[in-house]
Design a protein around this nucleic acid. Structure first.
Lengths: 240, 240
DNA sequence: TGCTCTATTGTTGTTTACAAACAACAGTTT
DNA sequence: AAACTGTTGTTTGTAAACAACAATAGAGCA
């Protein structure tokens, strides 16, 4: 059984369905499993060396996260994205992040701010070569996750986690396809996010909201161009 | 096996875990299962005449909906509410409904508007006696669900469904405890919601947003008073 | 050739049985 | 009396077998 013996210091004991969920999520985000691909419980169970129980549980969770789509009696497939999805995701993100930064202004502790600063400084320490799409998108989402954590709003955080998975799923892929966007975007990443910390610390709620809105909208603009070119990600019926 | 042979005309075939989920949800919302109550899989399985599989699935879904809380190796209990929860829920609701009505202004079809009007007229046809807290809260949530449907925003709708369950879970209970609030609230319900339909039809986005914001905030004010009196819903360790 | 019906096959839904984790208790030791 | 330790009982996590459903291919017929 493929249990990782000693991973990070985890709060609650890891259980098989957790392992399966995380592995599957990684596989989807890294596009090892292409969008539209069918996932049979039996096949996956055999491949991962566990029974179907934990697999079913993992698939249900990923369905909730929007990374797979389960149809009754028909099974699961990896979710695929079109421009409508992008519009939905980013409009949700705007609404949620505005709420998040509002609550963060009220509730953020100094350790919350410190956590955000550390992510920022981690980014600044990266060399140009280390700033791969994969790594930057990871740090980007980590930063925003820290923002949501600073809001101290349980339901908001859970909702963000769902959205984050979906964003992650197409962000790595999208960015890695576009060299020139990265050229203009990467240098601005640091200063851009430094503003977040500042407005939260000073509790400038209305300015904070504006900052977030602009930020998310620029993010959408970068991503959207990709999904106009690629008209309809035709559902490919993938064979194993 | 306790399958309801012919329920409503359902789109996809109902499966055991669906039945269990719906029954359990109803039981929680109607307070047949009091907040904090322990739910053992075996016990429930025996009681409903199904095996633990569907039960587990149902509990996981209701955990996602926020109606039960699952702790690893410790099982599930019915969620309980305090004033912090109320603040979280209503702040989320504001953000979501503003987004919803914005999208509804852009995307609502005439049949969407008709659906909302019909709920309104159903309400108006109710006699005073029929306007029980249970019935009114059901219609209220149905109306707002119609609003979210009119937005034609899949992810927004799913997020609303989660929130709706939670609201429903304490709304029936809260309202049924307070006679005088209903006296001033019920007569205004109809006109209040009629405005929604009007601003959507005329696509008055900014006015629509204001309308929604005020509406939700008044809702919060009504509910919040209840949770100030009742300081801490002590976790009662309920025996069966 | 084209259609319908049936049988087959592969997949998911459900059940049952077993293993592991946790919680409560009793007995022992200090 | 208090704290530790081993045991027992209850409950969840996992596995494997069985049943039901959906899709498909092929036989039979017009």
């Amino acid at each position: 059984m493929a249990l990782k013996p000693l991973g990070l210091g985890l709060a609650s004991r890891r259980v098989l369905s957790d392992v399966v969920t995380d592995d599957l999520r990684d596989a989807i985000i890294s596009h090892d499993l292409e969008p539209g691909r069918r996932i049979a419980e039996d096949e996956l169970a055999l491949q991962m060396g566990v029974s179907r129980g934990p697999i079913r549980e993992a698939l249900m969770r990923l369905d909730r996260e929007g990374l797979v789509t389960i149809e009754r009696h028909k099974g699961a497939r990896v979710a695929s994205w079109n421009d409508t999805d992008i519009q939905e995701i980013y409009s949700m993100r705007s609404a949620l992040e505005v709420l998040a930064i509002e609550w963060a202004c009220k509730n953020a502790t100094s350790s919350d701010l410190k956590a955000m600063e550390e992510i920022l400084s981690t980014y600044n320490k990266l060399s140009e070569k280390q700033r791969t799409p994969r790594e930057v998108s990871r740090l980007d989402l980590e930063f925003h996750t820290a923002l949501f954590a600073a809001a101290h709003h349980e339901r908001l955080f859970k909702t963000w986690e769902v959205l984050r998975s979906q964003i992650h799923a197409f962000l790595v892929y999208t960015w890695s396809q576009d060299g020139k966007i990265n050229k203009v975007f990467l240098p601005k990443w640091g200063p851009d996010h430094a503003v977040f910390i500042e407005v939260i610390r000073n509790k400038q709620i209305s300015k904070a909201k504006e900052t977030v809105l602009g930020h998310v909208e620029r993010g959408l603009a970068r991503v959207a161009t990709h999904f106009i070119e690629e008209p309809k990600p035709k559902k490919k019926v993938a064979k194993r």
